[in-house]
């Protein structure tokens, strides 16, 4: 097992809710509420979960755009959880980010050249062959025409813009790239191109990725390991094949069953069944006691409301992996609430 590049222990981010003239704090949105996660050198860790589960906040904590309320984040053994902007500066070279929205992540008033050379400028990185050459090399690297360096973002398509965002992230030759839903805003045909580009670049530059997404099939394609988040907590972490074959947490089971299968013949043959969750995700302002998933879980019992399940590997199950559940799902278990997909909903 390779060493951990980034390690998070008990990381929390609470956004205060204030009221009135004196900004009295009346509560907090617990976007990320105590997560333990490690990213190993050279791997791609997928982070999945539905909207509002805190995936993006977690990504912004790891790049230290946000400061954690509690817990520690270490990068290459160095504690970065409370470093100031100035202290973080040299570390920015090693951790970079790719953003979700290719339309708002590029400044419309800057040329592509200015956007991609900004990291070199801010970090004072010498360019032996001139800034223009460096920018053109980066453009070529991500599959764009190097002659386009003085065009503006509005002259590019969504996929091309995302490539510009990738070029900007690569400019500093980082070790870790945190990709916050990098393909969810793109057409499906473009998604594959961008994901493949990211894989090629990973091989070429020995990159480590944290790939945040809600699309399970994309995550399955690119990830080595996958972590599942629900309401600010990590509920399950496992190697990709292990997780997709033997999901242990009821939430993961439900999430997996919601992935659409494009081929109706295969869908019938596999006797695929769906788990339908009822109700909404509870508010992160006032999350349920004990296990956060218990309000929507078909296996919930009394202990789930009183005791929070730790993220552990159960010894009684040989195929188990890190799961935060009192009653993990076992193989071939009939799940209550599961019903054939063929029945019209």
């Amino acid at each position: 097992m390779s060493e951990n590049l980034l390690e998070a222990t008990g990381v929390e981010k609470h956004f205060p809710i204030t009221k009135g003239l004196f900004k009295r704090q009346i509560g907090a949105v617990r976007a990320v509420d105590g997560i333990d996660l490690s990213i190993r050198t050279g791997e791609t860790l997928g982070l999945v979960g539905e909207s509002g589960s805190g995936k993006s906040t977690a990504g912004r904590l790891f790049t230290r755009i946000l400061e954690p309320t509690a817990g520690t984040i270490t990068f290459e053994g160095e504690d970065i959880s409370h470093k100031s902007v100035t202290q973080m500066r040299p570390l920015r070279r090693d951790v970079q980010m790719i953003f979700q929205d290719p339309y708002s992540s590029l400044n419309p008033r800057h040329t592509v050249g200015a956007i991609i050379s900004a990291p070199l400028q801010i970090q004072n990185i010498p360019t032996p062959n001139g800034v223009k050459k460096a920018v053109q090399d980066l453009l070529a690297l991500v599959g764009l025409n190097p002659e386009h360096y003085n065009r503006y973002p509005h002259e590019f398509s969504g996929g091309q813009r995302q490539r510009i965002g990738i070029a900007r992230a690569l400019a500093l030759r980082p070790k870790l790239i945190i990709a916050d839903e990098p393909v969810s805003a793109l057409d499906v045909s473009i998604q594959a191109q961008v994901v493949n580009l990211m894989e090629d670049l990973q091989r070429e530059f020995n990159l480590t990725y944290l790939f945040i997404a809600h699309d399970l099939s994309v995550v399955r394609h690119i990830s080595d390991r996958v972590a599942v988040m629900y309401l600010g907590k990590i509920v399950e972490v496992a190697d990709r094949d292990d997780l997709y074959k033997n999901p242990r947490h009821p939430y993961t089971v439900a999430l997996m069953s919601a992935v659409p299968v494009p081929d109706p013949v295969r869908r019938d043959r596999a006797q695929r069944e769906r788990v339908l969750l009822t109700g909404d995700v509870p508010s992160p302002i006032n999350p349920p006691s004990g296990c956060r998933f218990r309000t929507r879980c078909w296996k919930a019992q009394e202990i789930c409301a009183t005791e929070e399940p730790p993220l552990i590997t159960r010894l009684d199950d040989p195929e188990s992996h890190l799961t935060a559940c009192h009653f993990p799902v076992v193989n071939d278990e009939t799940v209550a609430g599961r019903r054939p997909a063929a029945t019209p909903a």
Binding site: R60, R89, Q96, S105, N107, A118, P119, G165
Partner: peptide
């Protein structure tokens, strides 16, 4: 907007964000 966050994640200080972005 995300380009402000992007600039921050590159290590830009507030004056740069204000006047350049």
């Amino acid at each position: 907007r995300e380009f402000v966050e992007a600039s921050r994640s590159l290590g830009a200080r507030s004056p740069r964000i204000l006047f350049r972005e």
